[in-house]
Design a protein around this nucleic acid. Sequence first.
DNA 1: TCATAAACCTAACAAGTGTTAGGCAAATTT
DNA 2: AAATTTGCCTAACACTTGTTAGGTTTATGA
Lengths: 201, 201
Amino acid sequence: MKEINNRKTQIITTSATLFEQKGYDACTVRDIANALDIEAASLYHHFKSKEEILSIICFEMAHKLIDAMDETNDIYFNAEQKLRMAIEQHLGIIVNDLSKSAVFLFEWKRLNEPFLSEFKTLRNQYENGFKQIITEGIQEDVFDDVDSKFAVLSVLSSVNWIIEWYKPTGNMKPKEIAEKMSDFVLGGLRKKLVTDSNYKQ
Amino acid sequence: MKEINNRKTQIITTSATLFEQKGYDACTVRDIANALDIEAASLYHHFKSKEEILSIICFEMAHKLIDAMDETNDIYFNAEQKLRMAIEQHLGIIVNDLSKSAVFLFEWKRLNEPFLSEFKTLRNQYENGFKQIITEGIQEDVFDDVDSKFAVLSVLSSVNWIIEWYKPTGNMKPKEIAEKMSDFVLGGLRKKLVTDSNYKQ
DNA sequence: TCATAAACCTAACAAGTGTTAGGCAAATTT
DNA sequence: AAATTTGCCTAACACTTGTTAGGTTTATGA
């Protein structure tokens, strides 16, 4: 019973790659089977449906992100440090598996009930993590008094959009990207302690 | 010859809505026909293929954005004003047709050659508009000396992600969103004229 | 060695896919 | 009034879809 789900893992990984490349709907079970050099019907020994594969990918990523957020919140940090860590963790997880992340970010829409509702709940839970950090920062008076919902969306958009441009062969390492992105985001969030002549307070 | 393409326009609009809702691949020509109360085959009197409809939507949006960018650049403004105007225009166009925009942003991947290459070219052209403004701002010394490619991606991610959360019924008007978003983005971009104790220069 | 389970196979299904051919009726133009 | 165009129809095509049933091979463990 050492690695009972080795084949399962393999199928999921392959599926994620193909789901990303062709889109969930355009990717057929025969495409997946073909990539694994088996017959389409054989997949049904491991999963009961194509949608089950999709759901596993989506939920796995969601839980990874939520766990990372919990970890961030467990350690005591001020809001800025928390935000920096949350961004770094988020980018790290995405960059670590671009295919699954792309599926998590875009293909979850193809889920049907009851998966869909469950997924949305997890997604909300995660986004609330960011919201809480930002709200905290505003209360601590280290962040500008921005509309926190708006700020959350801006932050999430920046960290999520990485999937559209990140290439593992590029010269920027994930940690470096996280740092730059945090600087960029915080440049907008951070309370200006002094009057900047170009900035209307 | 007043409104020769009225029906065509109708089909495109309906298609855009359905492409957004179900995804291009999952949306069948029968779905589109059904929504218009006609038969699937009748669509082929107006278009030669399902893909043609997709391509029209993608290219229409691309050209709208490019035209707006040209307009922005035609008027003399400094970099900050240009960026603000580009963001406002971009958000305005997206919010004005959320379905087509969603298709433009996400479903273009389903295009095949030669559409795909042509689309990518237009997309690049548009993104270069943003890049140029930011580079200009850095040269004018009103923007921080950030990695301009990185800044472009951050800006684009913020303005594009609006599609994931904007609801026309919400209480924020597009112009207001554009303003807040510009403030947010510029907060990060703008050159700090004085030392901020929380900011490592 | 034998039993069990895991992994995969062939064959087939019912339903759905984009698309084409050819025709009919109404509107528009000549 | 005749000719043409526009918009839509029915019927069908060749093919692909996810999935199931039932059987065979391969590995595992007693």
